[in-house]
Simulated assay, not measured.
Amino acid sequence: MTDLDLKPLLAAAIEAALEAAREILDVYAGEITVDQKRDLSPVTIADGRAEKVILRHLLAAAPDIPIISEEQAEADGLPAAAAARYWLVDPLDGTKEFIKRNGEFTVNIALVEGGRPILGVVGIPVQGLIYAAAGPGTALRRAADGTCTPIETRPCPPEGAVVMSSRSHSSCGELDRLLETRKVADRRIAGSALKFCSVAEGVADLYPRIGPTMEWDTAAGHALLEAAGGRMSNLDGTPFRYGKPGFRNPGFIAEGR
């Protein structure tokens, strides 16, 4: 059990996500210049601007908790091992979707302790939405006007699961084979951590991922999902943990009740 007071940390993470969204939308409204990282993935000035404000908020709230953030890791490298407690930040999850201007990108902020995400915030800039949680039963959706609504996962409907998948993995043969063991009513495509939000608020039931991701891609959505009554596991059913070598994830299944 954590000895932290998570309430002020959650408030700081929400404010960070809101300010990061403003930075992102400012860039989104104009011409988007695209650069490449070492791994050839795209990056824009919005990634850096969002990260800067998030780091400022988190360091002010908890100066002793280390932060692993995607763009900072690109510049400075990753730590050799995970701390017992650390922040994971993806300041702009879904940069490809941002460049395409389809709105399917998020701001992801999570706090990990003992290999588990104990706090998560997912912001959806174009909708002005914030999804946030810090423990069982705390998952909520904050609307653009500040109204907060509790959310929870749903039991899988008798007619079958609504399955979320990434645009780049929607026709993966391995994914198709995995879903052969499930009763599927519908398959929907979405970018970034939006898939976790859909399962957490009970409009979808399953988000399987075959290919690798980084821990900052999943930790915030994972925290939200668990707080809403769902779960996330490795493809073999074992618990999904954080602080792995290189902070790289294997495939996983995220699901509701």
Rank of each mutant, 00 (worst) to 15 (best):
F196K: 00
G229R: 02
A16N: 02
L225R: 02
G123M: 05
P42E: 10
G191Y: 01
K183I: 15
A60I: 11
P150E: 09
G103H: 03
E180G: 08
P79W: 01
G256I: 06
I32C: 05
E180C: 12
T238F: 01
G115P: 04
I99G: 01
P63H: 12
S171K: 15
C148E: 15
A190M: 07
G114D: 07
V163G: 01
H57F: 09
A73E: 11
D236C: 02
G230V: 01
L140A: 15
P66T: 13
A132L: 03
E226G: 06
A81H: 13
S69N: 08
I124Y: 09
G135L: 04
A143D: 13
T213W: 03
P66R: 05
R167D: 15
Y207Q: 05
I24G: 00
I67A: 06
T147Q: 14
A61D: 09
W216G: 02
L119R: 04
V122A: 05
G243P: 05
L206Q: 08
R188K: 14
G123S: 06
G202D: 00
D176Q: 15
I130C: 03
S165G: 13
P63M: 08
S198T: 12
P79S: 09
W216D: 00
I210F: 09
E113P: 10
A204R: 02
L40W: 13
G211A: 15
V107H: 02
F98V: 01
I124V: 15
V89C: 06
A132I: 07
A62Y: 01
E23W: 12
V112N: 01
P8L: 12
P150W: 11
V184Y: 06
T2R: 07
A132R: 08
R167A: 12
L140H: 13
N108A: 11
I109P: 01
G30H: 13
R257A: 14
D93I: 10
S69C: 07
K183Q: 15
A62G: 13
A75L: 14
S192M: 05
L55D: 11
L6F: 10
A60Q: 12
I24E: 04
T2Q: 11
A143V: 08
A110V: 12
G103K: 02
D26F: 13
I54N: 00
L25H: 12
I32W: 07
C172K: 14
F196H: 07
I54S: 04
S198D: 13
F252L: 10
R209W: 10
E113S: 06
R85Q: 13
R231I: 05
E23C: 09
I24H: 00
N108D: 14
L9R: 03
A83W: 00
K195F: 03
D236Y: 09
G146T: 10
A84Y: 12
L4T: 08
A227W: 00
I118N: 02
N108H: 06
A29H: 14
A20E: 01
P136C: 14
I210W: 03
K96F: 04
P245G: 07
E70Q: 04
L40G: 11
S41G: 09
A220I: 00
Q127F: 15
I130F: 02
A75C: 14
R142N: 09
L18V: 13
V122L: 10
R182Q: 09
K244W: 06
G77F: 06
I65W: 01
I118S: 02
G211Q: 15
G115Y: 07
S171V: 15
L40V: 13
S198Q: 11
G146W: 04
E226S: 05
A82C: 09
V121C: 03
P208C: 07
A220S: 10
I151Q: 01
T238Q: 00
